[in-house]
Amino acid sequence: MKPRFLLLACAGITAAIAVAALAQAGGPTAKAEGVTFLGEPLTPEQIGLGRELYAANCASCHGSKLEGQPDWQRRLPNGRMPAPPHNETGHTWHHADRQLFTITQRGVSAVVPGYESDMPAFEGVLSDAEIAAVLAYIKSTWPERQREFQAKVSARDGGRS
């Protein structure tokens, strides 16, 4: 068996396990009430779609419970940072909606020029509405304090990327 095939097979198995674990364990609790994206209220359907898309596209790196990779604040041997958590213990909620959308769509370097990251850009993989749904799901799991803080950051941002 070639090493590349073995690596791809392991990645596929890991993704399948993450999706199954998220579905079985229920993952973080989503709360649709009061969750907005770019100032617009979000529906339970958008959050449900986001949960499915997160499980299929994000959980293999960011964790089925949005917990991120171990030692996410310490550089990997390749100089890049591990995937951060998207729950209240991470820093995702410090960023405005537009910035989170741009990072997800075009990659971290679209916001921080020259920054090298293992996170792929999802432009062409997920539609704008699907990216918004994933972010809606993530936001729906945060405690009220983090959602309020992030809403204020987004309001100050005024829609800039």
Rank of each mutant, 00 (worst) to 15 (best):
4 R>E: 15
6 L>K: 15
8 L>R: 12
8 L>V: 10
10 C>G: 15
14 T>G: 07
16 A>R: 14
18 A>N: 00
19 V>I: 10
20 A>C: 03
20 A>W: 14
21 A>Q: 14
22 L>R: 03
22 L>A: 13
24 Q>E: 09
26 G>Q: 02
26 G>A: 11
28 P>T: 06
29 T>W: 04
30 A>T: 12
30 A>E: 12
30 A>K: 07
30 A>D: 08
31 K>D: 14
31 K>F: 08
33 E>K: 13
34 G>C: 05
34 G>H: 09
35 V>Y: 00
37 F>C: 12
37 F>P: 07
38 L>E: 13
39 G>C: 05
40 E>Y: 10
41 P>R: 07
44 P>F: 06
44 P>E: 06
45 E>C: 08
46 Q>M: 05
46 Q>G: 01
48 G>L: 02
49 L>D: 02
51 R>H: 06
51 R>E: 02
52 E>Q: 03
52 E>V: 13
54 Y>G: 06
55 A>D: 01
55 A>F: 03
56 A>Q: 13
57 N>K: 12
58 C>Y: 02
59 A>L: 02
60 S>G: 09
61 C>W: 01
61 C>Y: 01
61 C>V: 00
62 H>P: 03
63 G>T: 07
64 S>F: 08
64 S>T: 04
65 K>E: 15
66 L>S: 01
67 E>A: 13
70 P>V: 04
71 D>F: 13
72 W>L: 07
73 Q>H: 06
73 Q>E: 14
73 Q>Y: 00
74 R>N: 13
75 R>V: 11
77 P>F: 10
78 N>S: 14
82 P>E: 11
83 A>K: 02
84 P>V: 09
85 P>C: 02
86 H>F: 00
87 N>D: 08
88 E>L: 02
89 T>W: 01
91 H>S: 14
92 T>C: 07
92 T>P: 02
93 W>K: 02
94 H>I: 12
96 A>K: 02
96 A>Q: 00
97 D>Q: 11
97 D>S: 12
101 F>I: 08
102 T>M: 08
103 I>H: 03
104 T>M: 04
105 Q>M: 11
106 R>M: 12
110 A>G: 04
111 V>N: 07
111 V>T: 13
112 V>A: 11
113 P>T: 00
114 G>M: 09
116 E>Y: 03
117 S>Y: 05
118 D>V: 04
119 M>K: 01
119 M>E: 06
119 M>W: 08
120 P>V: 13
120 P>N: 06
122 F>Y: 14
124 G>D: 08
125 V>N: 12
125 V>I: 15
126 L>C: 05
126 L>G: 08
127 S>N: 05
127 S>I: 06
134 V>C: 03
136 A>W: 01
136 A>C: 05
136 A>S: 09
138 I>C: 06
141 T>W: 05
143 P>C: 10
145 R>A: 15
146 Q>I: 00
148 E>P: 00
149 F>N: 12
150 Q>C: 15
151 A>C: 05
151 A>K: 11
152 K>T: 09
153 V>I: 15
156 R>L: 15
158 G>L: 05
158 G>Q: 07
159 G>E: 03
161 S>T: 10
